[in-house]
Amino acid sequence: MVALTPTAGAGGLAETQTGGPATSSRRRRRPGIGRGLVLLICGIYFIGPLVGAFWFSIQDKVHGGVQFSAYAHVFSAVGFSDAFMLSLKLGIGTVLISLLLMVPTMLLLHLRAPKFRPVVETLCLMPLVIPPVVLVAGVGVVLAWGPNQLAGTPLQTFLNAIQSGKTPWVLILEYVVLTLPFTYRSLDAGIRSVDIHTLTEAGLNLGAGWGTVTMRILLPSLRTSVLNAAFLSFALVFGEYTVASILQYQPFAVFIVAAGQTEGQLSTSLSLLSLLITWLLLLLISLLGGRNSTKVDI
């Protein structure tokens, strides 16, 4: 639900003059049975199910032994490609809309309207407080107005349009809300770390217009944090289950559950793959961000 910390590099261990007595003396201390035991037990708990699931997914139930068909046949599984493409579409749509909405908002907020910052920050973090299931319950109620209270109005047409058709826009619109905390934190950290005031003033001072300043100075300097926000949103949308399943769409995560009714191995292998891919994605972000820059916690 909360907190994404790509790196722990920002630890505030004070460096001493000689460059390392603190760490060195720590290393000299005896390893500590307690610490080892904690790591061992937690290691078993966390790695156990992963290993178990992997083993389960490659068992050959018919002939015994090992086979990788659950992985080999992922793409040919019935419904998989539809679900996958849907998730892809939702992910891209969400990323685009949330960046389009939030990048100008955040720049404006920092440069011109700082007094609105507490309000905007609170609003952006609210989706973490309100359980998604509550939000989706509300969305259900509002959608139901279409054929009832709003029948015959342009709003009914709008509500119809976002539900039906090839792209379920209602999901994208709500996913933008769900990813707001991530987007806000990434962009906020990025903007703080480059001191956009000085950059902007320097740009204006050199005779650039606001447009030039935004396109040529601000956006390029926020590249990492924008990328960061995009990755996080995408990953979140790709794994999203609650809203999609309650509104009865079948993107990737819902497909995994549906397939699980009949094909346990397929669901297990997809689960493992999605965890692995998300993890690699986060590792990539953490490497991109470097150790000193944006640390996104939510």
Partner: peptide
């Protein structure tokens, strides 16, 4: 920096041996 003065003090304080 790095001349060892802090190390000396830490040895005296007992933070290091």
């Amino acid at each position: 920096s790095g001349c060892g003065k802090t190390t000396a003090l830490r040895l005296l304080a007992g933070f290091d041996q």
